[in-house]
Amino acid sequence: MIARALLGLALLAAPAAARAESLVSALSDEAVEINSSFTGSRIVVFGAIEHAPADSDDYEVAIVVSGPPQDIVARQKGRVFGVWANRDTREFDDVPSYYVVHFSENLSRQASLERLEQYRLGIDNLPFVRESAGNAVTADFAEAVVRIKNGRGLYMERPNAVEFLGSHVFRTTFFLPANVPTGQYTVAVYVFRNETFLAGQTQSLIVEKSGTNDEIARFSENQPLVYGLATVALSLFTGWLGGVVFRRG
């Protein structure tokens, strides 16, 4: 949703004359199913720039995949009487659970990335990071959130990751790790020339538990009492069966 709103802003901001080109993009899958043997998944994003003038081949592309927003609490440990305990906390609302940006090679220079700030692309421009910048302590917490999410493969900025197959056709592959949060994702594709926005498109991607996993998670959420009793019944049966099997054996 955020990505879509930003893209709308970007579209309004773009000069009318530069809007000649348009963009068509597609995902390899519209849904990612988390089954029992889920170890992560790849999503390929394809894009083609239409109505491009014949001589133009200097397009720049950024592609953002962002996951459902979460409210997060970050805690900092410190020494209390020699013991390490959580001392300070900060809460961040509407933090994207997953945020990965891929840039094409010609957009990967530091100077270009800085100029893209107006389009709010990149981890440093996420609302919760920007809003925390005023306070040094809060900024440290926001940085820790980014660092921890990065360590889990959920936050990433990858330069040189969008590959041009021709002058107007490009492709990139995102990896959703095994611990990927479930929910509604958005995939936003931005095309620039000379760091000026030309065209964009967003699509949604669903990440959901499937099959037995989905049923168990729903069961636990919707009927916790029955779920708890069923777990107890399973334990009693397994324990009893174990006793019977091994006494005879």
Partner: peptide, 18 residues
């Protein structure tokens, strides 16, 4: 050991209500 030795990262995060 965990109580008295400095953790590798003093920060941790948790989803609220999750």
């Amino acid at each position: 050991f965990d109580l008295f030795v400095a953790p590798p990262d003093p920060y941790s995060i948790e989803m609220l209500g999750a």
